[in-house]
């Protein structure tokens, strides 16, 4: 009994060591090291958006909703000082004053471009 318990304990430790060594040798996929939208959204760091402002993110044309999630996550990582959500997710009574677009698609009606850098546009609600 005591011997079998010792063998089991040693085997558990050995197995854990082996699994640990194996998992330490795993190589992450390139997109894990550098997320897909990281480069595209990097200019957001310089966008003139006031701290704590609610900001709507416009889903780029050609990117389906099912796969667009990482874009919102990356926007939050680039500007953690803002309140993010998708443009289509806003509900009254909150009305975001800023909209961020990452492609050149036409702006929705009622929004005017106020800043642009390397494909990133900031739009403000209202006429120019």
């Amino acid at each position: 009994m005591a011997r079998s318990r010792r063998i089991a304990a040693l085997a558990a430790a050995g197995l854990s060591l082996g699994l640990g060594a194996r998992s330490a040798l795993e190589r992450p996929a390139p997109e894990q090291r550098r997320p897909r939208w990281a480069a595209a959204l990097a200019p957001l760091a310089g966008a003139p958006l006031p701290t704590a402002a609610p900001v709507a993110l416009l889903r780029p044309a050609g990117v389906p909703a099912a796969t667009a999630g990482p874009l919102l996550l990356e926007a939050a990582w680039q500007r953690p000082d803002l309140r993010w959500d998708w443009f289509e997710a806003w509900r009254e009574p909150i009305r975001p004053m800023f909209l961020v677009a990452v492609d050149a698609a036409p702006a929705p009606a009622g929004w005017t471009e106020s800043w642009r850098r390397e494909g990133i546009r900031v739009l403000r609600r209202g006429p120019p």
Partner: peptide, 15 residues
Amino acid sequence: AAAAGAWTPVLAAPL
């Protein structure tokens, strides 16, 4: 025990 602890799977995994 200490080595198995430090090398436990997932702690050092790059993923």
